[in-house]
């Protein structure tokens, strides 16, 4: 730190009547910004600092109240996904009722893999996200954003599925693990053909290959049998790792999204 200016110079700085040259005035001012001792000497001369402080406080009190800081809730869930989530949850509720009436068809676990797909399809879609063009030009756009929105979808679907499976007495693992596996599969396939197409394709394949035969034959399919939980868990893990390696494919919204 430089040497302190002499009390005489400080007195001349504070007195508007004297002609302190500009260079000295600036050097005193810069020194005063950092040196509390000299400031005290300056403040002792008159009540300038108190008057300024009182003025600022009065100004703050008279002015508008500061904006209350709210955490942005919308980062997780974007409103255009809400109708699709409501639809998925209602379909699950219907499945619970139907299964209660006809317990031989495990409708809840049959629908569990496809339950999150409508929401995931909406999460990264040019046709359904109104702000897609704005968002796809920002640095946050990409796999991380898709995962965040998928997590928001799962945050609604998983509790609904858990509730449905306890109501109907189906194994929780055979309900939730296929759900997660299909989410991961949608993201992996979506890296190549677009998330929307991937969701539609996987959903249609599951319904045609598993759900329809199971309803027609009134029989629990092998893929949802009691021993299948381990296979689903491994599949989820593998697909999750695959999805993480395809991050570069999500940097831009391509025309097939």
């Amino acid at each position: 730190m430089t040497t302190h200016p002499s009390p005489a110079v400080i007195a001349r700085y504070a007195d508007p009547g004297t002609d302190l040259d500009e260079v000295t005035a600036w050097s005193v001012e810069v020194h005063l910004e950092d040196c509390a001792a000299c400031r005290a000497r300056l403040g002792g001369r008159d009540d300038l600092l108190e008057r300024v402080a009182a003025g600022v406080a009065a100004g703050i009190a008279a002015g508008p109240a500061p904006m209350r800081h709210r955490r942005l809730r919308n980062r997780w869930l974007v409103w255009h996904m809400v109708p699709w989530l409501i639809m998925s949850v209602s379909v699950l509720a219907c499945a619970v009722l139907l299964q209660a009436a006809q317990p031989s068809v495990p409708l809840v676990s049959l629908l569990a893999p496809v339950a999150p797909l409508p929401g995931v399809a909406m999460a990264w879609s040019r046709r359904h996200d109104p702000a897609w063009e704005l968002i796809s030009a920002t640095p946050k756009a990409g796999l991380a954003m898709l995962l965040r929105r998928t997590a928001a979808v799962l945050g609604v679907i998983i509790p609904a599925l858990a509730l449905a499976s306890t109501r109907t007495g189906v194994s929780l693992a055979v309900t939730l693990l296929p759900c997660l596996a299909f989410c991961a599969a949608t993201i992996v396939l979506g890296a190549f053909v677009g998330v929307y197409r991937a969701a539609v394709g996987l959903g249609a394949a599951w319904v045609l290959a598993v759900v329809v035969p199971a309803i027609v034959t009134v029989h629990t399919p092998v893929v949802l049998g009691p021993g299948s939980a381990l296979v689903w868990a491994l599949l989820t893990l593998v697909l999750g790792v695959l999805a993480a390696t395809r991050a570069t494919n999500f940097r831009r919204l391509s025309s097939h999204n």
């Binding site: 942005l72 919308n74 980062r75 974007v78 409103w79 255009h80 996200d129 109104p130 702000a131 897609w132 063009e133 704005l134 968002i135 920002t138 640095p139 946050k140 756009a141």
Partner: peptide
């Protein structure tokens, strides 16, 4: 430019700043 109709102007600009 599409936008989320339920956002206020401040929320919208804030969301974009966060993005």
């Amino acid at each position: 430019f599409g936008f989320y109709p339920r956002f206020t102007v401040r929320e919208f600009v804030e969301y974009m700043a966060w993005l």
